[in-house]
Design a protein around this nucleic acid. Structure first.
Lengths: 246, 246
DNA sequence: TACAAAGGTACAAGGTCTATACCTTGCACC
DNA sequence: GGTGCAAGGTATAGACCTTGTACCTTTGTA
């Protein structure tokens, strides 16, 4: 019965809430400069006591995700995320194999998502995916690009009619940090837009193998870009996004 | 900020422990007739108080997973799982799309696992996979078959050098319940052995596409078999496994 | 300068987990 | 058929976590 010799523990509410909020930041649902709802309000939204939320915010504050200001214009604001990004880079460099492990996992999830989307696409799904690509094309700042990119993958998962794939894709994106906040140049952004279009056309045609292959290529591009960022000698500078930083 | 309007909660230790044990049963790590360690011992292994464990066992007892006997030959024994299996079947029939959703997810995970295993296999990985197939071939009762099957997929994930894929494969197998406890006839078992061998040969040759395709076929066979079981008019009878029931 | 909107602090009530001690059941063996 | 003993069954006190409520402090702005 050696198989059950693991330790089991519970997370405190504080930890759960901190994870939840961190995840929203990683996913780009809220980004640098954004203000979270007031503590009392957010606590009510989440269905928890204010103290529990406050402790979670304290954790995020210590980890450099948010800063808290008091007074009339006060509130909890998402930072530029320099500290968390630096930590994430350090971890990806240090923990051997983790970086590629995450990318490999994403490839498995997203190629199958693309394949199913190509097989099952309905007209309204295609329209939704196309809309996210248009958003991506006209995105002029990090926030817009980030959201459009998230929505592309989410709408594809919806077209694939697979809730588990969709959820896993989202989790994995969260683990990879919100990558487009790191991309320093316009070129990989343009490449990314092209990739998305290639995937979309294959899905539109209903060509399952082409859709899977295009998605695989896209994520391999991501792997290359991210690897360059993670293992670069100079840290990335958020200001150098494209030419029109907000 | 509507994106954060979800409720967050903690699980009690009791719930965590119950989930943990249920998972072990679903995965077949412990099967019908097996006795769990004594409460005091198991509590210590898990690093929790005995009362917390007892409450978890109470839950499993109510759900029909285990029965508790007192006295010298007392202890906690895994049942024949008739009640949980019946509930699982009912759920798969009722919740529209969930059955196929799980299978689709498995296909994404396991085809990529097979692909990576074929690309990265080392001699000792191949030996480990081959050993599980031999165990499978000579398995004469449900327990042996179940464990060998679990180990096949686990050893393949190890050959693929992807811990995330391995973990996700295992989680998904747990969600599908331990399927071979349900299989009523010897034929699908033989088919399953053949499938495993086909996957293995492709992995051995290093043919990534063939490995992925063979795995896809295997899981599609599983889909067909399970669908028959889930939507059968008569409930499955555990006694009819092969010809040599333990 | 006073107000309002936000965060900061304090505290009591209730729930959960742990540790420990002790009771009860019932097979095995003399 | 009684006794040992390995299990499960029960009770309780203390530590810790979560909640709800009330009140204080900071700071921009009218």
């Amino acid at each position: 019965m050696e198989s059950m010799a693991n330790g089991v523990t519970t997370q405190t509410l504080t930890e759960v809430v901190a994870d939840h909020l961190r995840r929203l930041i990683h996913l780009g649902e809220v980004g640098p400069g954004d203000r979270l709802p007031a503590e009392r309000e957010l606590a009510e939204q989440l269905g928890i006591a204010r103290l529990s939320l406050r402790e979670a915010l304290k954790t995020l504050q210590n980890d450099g995700y948010v800063e808290v200001r008091r007074g009339a214009r006060g509130g909890t604001y998402v930072t530029e995320l320099e500290v968390p990004v630096a930590r994430w880079r350090a971890r990806m460099r240090t923990v051997s194999g983790e970086f590629d492990d995450i990318i490999d996992f994403r490839i498995g999830l997203e190629t199958e998502t693309a394949r199913l989307a190509a097989a099952r696409r309905a007209p309204e799904d295609l329209a939704a995916v196309r809309a996210t690509i248009e958003d991506l094309t006209v995105a002029h700042d990090r926030t817009a690009f980030r959201l459009a990119d998230s929505r592309f993958h989410a709408s594809l998962a919806r077209a694939a009619r697979s809730s588990r794939l969709g959820a896993a894709v989202e989790s994995t994106r969260a683990e990879l940090f919100n990558t487009h906040d790191l991309l320093p140049f316009i070129d990989p952004v343009q490449e990314s837009v092209d990739d998305h279009e290639t995937v979309f056309r294959a899905v539109e045609k209903g060509d399952v193998d082409a859709a899977a292959a295009a998605m695989r290529d896209h994520i391999e591009h991501t792997r290359t870009q991210l690897r360059a960022i993670v293992f670069a000698t100079e840290p990335p500078s958020p200001e150098s996004f494209g030419t029109t930083v907000s």
